[in-house]
C-alpha cells in the first residue's frame, strides 16, 4: 500500500516538474479524472471484456482439468496429447488470433479460444502434478476396502490434488484478462482492448491508462474470487497453515 502511494506521488511529481505532455505520460490525477469522466464509456466496454474473461476462464479450467484427468488416467493420452499440449504453448497466439477471427467471426468465440489457448496450460500442468503426487499408500488402503476407481478418484486423488489445481486456476485467472484483451486487439468493436487500441491511436493516453487500471482491477477481482473459492474448498490446508 505504502509502496503504491510513494509510486503515485513520484509519478505525479515527475509529470509536474518535468512538465511531461499528457499524451506522452498523463499524471495520476489526469488518469483519475479520465476514470471519472469516461466512466460511461469504460463501464460498458469493461462489461464486455469481463464477460469474455470469465467465460474464457471457466472454459480453460474445464478443458485444462479434463485434459489433466485423461492424461493421468490413460498413458496413451499422455503419449498422444502431451507433445501437442506443450507445442501449443510455443505458438505465438498473436499470430494465430487473426486466423481464429477468420474462422470463427467477430463474436465471443475467438476471444474465448484465445483465452483457453493461453490459460489451460497452467491448469493442466498443475492438476497433473497434483493428481500424481497422491500418496500411493492411501490408494492401497482404499483398495483393501474394495474401493472402485471412481471412489479412489473422488475420495483421495481429487482432494489431494485440489491445492495444486487451485494454484493453476490462480495463474489462469490472472492471465485470462490478458487473453481477452489480446483477442479484442485483433478484431472487435467493443471491449477494453478495443477501447485501448482506439484511444491510443487518438493519443487519449489518460483514457488508455484508465482502461489499463480497470483491467488490472478485473484481474485482481478474478484472482481474489479464485482465492476465496480455494479457502472454502480446502479448509484443512488453512488449518495447517495457521498452526
Amino acid at each position: 500500500m505504502l509502496l503504491a502511494l510513494v509510486g503515485i506521488l513520484a509519478w505525479q511529481a515527475a509529470t509536474f516538474f518535468f512538465s511531461i505532455e499528457p499524451w506522452l505520460l498523463p499524471s495520476p490525477w489526469e488518469v483519475a479524472r479520465a476514470l471519472g469522466s469516461d466512466a460511461g464509456l469504460l463501464g460498458p466496454h469493461a462489461w464486455v471484456t469481463a464477460q469474455e474473461a470469465l467465460v474464457g476462464f471457466v472454459a480453460a479450467v474445464a478443458v485444462g482439468f479434463a485434459l489433466a484427468v485423461a492424461v493421468v488416467r490413460w498413458r496413451t493420452v499422455e503419449r498422444a496429447a502431451y507433445p501437442y499440449v506443450i507445442a501449443s504453448q510455443a505458438v505465438p497466439i498473436i499470430a494465430i488470433a487473426p486466423v481464429l477471427v477468420v474462422w470463427f467471426g467477430f463474436g465471443m468465440l475467438p476471444k474465448m479460444l484465445v483465452i483457453v489457448l493461453i490459460t489451460f496450460f497452467p491448469v493442466t500442468i498443475n492438476t497433473v502434478d497434483g493428481l500424481r503426487a497422491v500418496d500411493p499408500e492411501m490408494l492401497t488402503l482404499m483398495r483393501t476396502m474394495g474401493a472402485t476407481r471412481w471412489q479412489m478418484f473422488r475420495m483421495v486423488q481429487l482432494p489431494s490434488a485440489l491445492p495444486l489445481v487451485f494454484s493453476g486456476m490462480k495463474i489462469a485467472a490472472a492471465v485470462s484478462v490478458i487473453g481477452a484483451v489480446l483477442g479484442e486487439w485483433v478484431a472487435a468493436s467493443e471491449g477494453l482492448g478495443y477501447l485501448i487500441t482506439r484511444s491510443s491511436a487518438q493519443y487519449l493516453t489518460a483514457r488508455v491508462f484508465a482502461a489499463v487500471l480497470v483491467l488490472a482491477a478485473m484481474g485482481l477481482a478474478l484472482f481474489a474470487a479464485v482465492s476465496w473459492a480455494e479457502r472454502r474448498a480446502t479448509p484443512w490446508a488453512r488449518k495447517q497453515g495457521q498452526e
Partner: peptide
C-alpha cells in the same frame, strides 16, 4: 480378494482433507 479383512497399515494414512 479385497475387503474380507480390516487392514490398518503402518502409517495411520488418515486423509488430511477429512
Amino acid at each position: 480378494r479385497v475387503g474380507l479383512a480390516g487392514y490398518m497399515p503402518q502409517k495411520d494414512l488418515l486423509l488430511p482433507w477429512r
